[in-house]
């Protein structure tokens, strides 16, 4: 457990009128600092919020944006929704897989990138669309897959 987590937990408890609402915000904040949420981290968060580790485990596993395994510095979500499909998202994913040498769902060996399928990112006007660490990039035609990987991104 990192010393600052105790402070963050206290802040999360008071950010919303009811302390129950503290869990998701605290998970977000810790993940932002740590990159992902290990079993041990989840147990620490449970302790900080007086919840059982099983409860926190079960909540965290429900939501796709909480990473239960280590991820790369840049997490790339390629939208696979219908509107993006119509604009070539399958080919974009294919290009990224080739360039990164991984399949969707995997992280590159150097720990730089994690490549993930996304559901409709509510930016279908920018199809095909991708997010890098939740920042939008679009349209990214498949032949421009490179530019997506060159983007500078903040964590």
């Amino acid at each position: 457990m990192k010393p600052e987590w105790r402070e963050w937990a206290a802040e999360a408890r008071t950010e919303f009128p009811q302390a129950h609402s503290a869990l998701l915000p605290l998970l977000h904040r810790v993940q932002r600092a740590e990159g992902w949420l290990s079993g041990e981290t989840l147990a620490d968060i449970a302790e900080l919020l007086d919840l059982s580790p099983q409860y926190v485990q079960s909540v965290a596993s429900f939501y796709s944006l909480y990473f239960k395994e280590p991820v790369g510095k840049k997490v790339v979500h390629v939208c696979m929704g219908l509107s993006c499909m119509l604009a070539g998202s399958d080919e974009l994913m294919h290009q990224l897989e080739e360039k990164l040498g991984v399949s969707q769902g995997q992280t590159t060996a150097d720990g730089e990138y994690t490549l993930l399928e996304g559901e409709c990112l509510a930016a279908c006007d920018l199809a095909p669309v991708a997010q890098v660490n939740l920042r939008y990039h679009g349209p990214v035609p498949p032949e421009k897959a490179d530019t997506l990987l060159r983007e500078e991104v903040s964590p």
Partner: peptide, 12 residues
């Protein structure tokens, strides 16, 4: 009135 902004975490 107080307004609170809460972030979901990926679930349609």
């Amino acid at each position: 009135l107080d307004i609170f902004v809460y972030r979901g975490a990926g679930a349609y």
